[in-house]
Amino acid sequence: MAGIFETKLAELGVTLPDAPAPAANYVPFVQVGDLVHVSGQISNNADGFITGKLGQTMTADEGAAAAKTCAISLLAQAKAACGGDLDRLVRVVKLVGFVNSTADFSDQPKVINGASDFMVEALGDAGRHARSAVSAASLPFGVAVEIEGIFQIK
Rank of each mutant, 00 (worst) to 15 (best):
N45D: 15
A66H: 09
M119A: 01
V145T: 14
G124F: 07
H129T: 01
T51Q: 09
L74S: 13
F98T: 00
F98S: 14
L139G: 09
T102F: 10
I112P: 05
E148P: 00
C70E: 10
I147N: 05
G84K: 08
N45P: 08
S116L: 10
Q77L: 11
C82Q: 12
V111D: 03
A81W: 12
G149Y: 04
S138M: 06
K110Y: 03
I72R: 11
L95E: 06
V111W: 01
A144R: 01
S101W: 00
A71D: 14
E121A: 12
M119T: 01
D104L: 09
E148Q: 13
G83W: 10
E62D: 09
F105H: 11
Q77M: 14
V111L: 06
D117V: 12
I147R: 00
G48N: 05
L89E: 10
V134W: 00
F98N: 12
V93Y: 14
S73G: 14
D104W: 01
A130D: 13
G149N: 06
T51V: 11
E146P: 00
G97T: 08
F105N: 07
G63T: 03
K94H: 15
F141M: 12
G142F: 07
V134S: 15
F105K: 09
D117T: 15
K68V: 04
G55E: 08
A64P: 03
R91I: 04
A67F: 04
A76H: 02
A78G: 11
L74T: 06
G149M: 07
E62L: 08
G84A: 13
F105G: 12
D117Q: 13
A64E: 03
A133P: 03
A67D: 02
A115P: 05
N45M: 02
T51S: 08
G52M: 07
D125W: 04
K110N: 05
L54A: 06
A66K: 02
K94Q: 15
Q56W: 02
V96M: 11
E62K: 09
A60M: 03
D47F: 04
E62T: 02
V111C: 11
P140D: 12
V145F: 07
T59K: 05
G48F: 10
T102H: 04
L139A: 11
L54P: 02
S73Y: 08
L75M: 14
D117F: 08
